[in-house]
């Protein structure tokens, strides 16, 4: 805490020992702001992907579809048998046979609104909703095979797994981008600090002549770059948050593109970016400064 306080309050006399370098100050602020902005967007995309994928996966995990053979002769008997099996299966909270209108609505995107469903041998679909604990899929399949010949149970695994895989990859890309942004900030701050140290060789020499320890000399540079990186990141985070707030919003079902942003407690995460930028700058400058001072012996 004391280190943090010292860093923020600083020592005005010590700060004045090293002259201000306008160009590196402005560049550090600018790059830090841009990187923080990009980090906010990457974080928002990553979190939104996570949220949307979780929602979809949850919906798909809770529901399943049973498809009965399209045989007009046995259709009613099969439906009754299927409903009987499903209603007596533990872990299933509701079962509902889709009406003809609902089945037509499902086919409409592919065949248009004028499909003569009555004239076609359509399989009967039954929507199954599981309760919180779920049901024994393999057991249900075995019972259906025995009692409802030709019935096919689709528990949406084929849909859910690729979706979760894709979401996981997007999340990974998002976090990788954030890590790369952090590494870029560290590299940029290191370069800027090295430039500042190289430009102040004479100043360092004079400070040493009068008895300054390495820690004192390094502190003047470290404090300056840490505060600049933190201040730049605050600007970047504010800009990023504004962009997310004014961007078109949609519900989760509306998809990733319309719903990018933060929800609830997620807003804390972008607020941590300036702190992280300052921590990265602190260690990058400190390392660069001590290395330079060691070399300039």
């Amino acid at each position: 805490m004391k280190v943090l306080l010292d860093l923020i309050v600083g020592d005005p006399q010590a700060d004045r020992s090293v002259p201000q370098t306008g160009m590196t100050a402005r560049l550090t602020l600018f790059v830090s702001a841009v990187m923080a902005f990009l980090a906010v967007i990457a974080l928002a995309v990553s979190l939104t992907t996570n949220r949307v994928a979780s929602l979809w996966a949850e919906d798909l995990a809770e529901s399943a579809t049973l498809r009965l053979p399209a045989d007009p002769v046995t259709a009613d008997a099969l439906l009754l048998s299927a409903l009987d099996v499903l209603e007596t299966t533990p872990g299933i909270s509701s079962v509902r046979a889709l009406s003809q209108d609902e089945q037509q609505a499902l086919l409409e995107p592919w065949f248009g609104p004028d499909l003569p469903l009555d004239a076609l041998p359509m399989p009967q679909l039954i929507e199954i909703v599981a309760d919180g604990d779920g049901y024994d899929v393999d057991g249900l399949r075995a019972r259906l095979t025995a009692q409802v010949p030709g019935a096919i149970l689709d528990d949406h695994t084929a849909w859910r797994e690729p979706l979760l895989g894709a979401a996981s990859r997007v999340r990974l890309i998002g976090w990788s981008v954030i890590l790369l942004i952090g590494a870029t900030v560290a590299a940029m701050i290191t370069l800027a600090a090295q430039a500042a140290l190289a430009a102040n060789v004479q100043v360092i020499s004079v400070l040493r002549l009068v008895g300054a320890k390495d820690a004192y000399i390094a502190r003047a540079f470290v404090r300056r770059f840490t505060l600049r990186a933190g201040a730049g990141a605050i600007v970047g985070v504010v800009c990023g948050a504004l962009v997310l707030l004014v961007a078109p919003q949609g519900d989760a079902a509306g998809g990733l593109l319309l719903g990018v942003g933060f929800e609830g407690a997620e807003w804390i995460l972008p607020l941590l970016i300036p702190l992280l930028a300052a921590i990265v700058a602190f260690f990058a400058t400190r390392t660069a400064a001590f290395r330079r001072l060691r070399e300039q012996t």
Partner: peptide, 30 residues
């Protein structure tokens, strides 16, 4: 160095600081 005062021929000041600040520099850094 805090026990040895050094005077150089070229003085070696920090040109962005006033003479008073330069003279006080050994106290500041310690």
């Amino acid at each position: 160095r805090r026990r040895i005062g050094v005077v150089h021929q070229d003085c070696r000041f920090l040109d962005h600081l006033s003479i008073a600040e330069n003279i006080a520099l050994p106290l500041t850094v310690s």
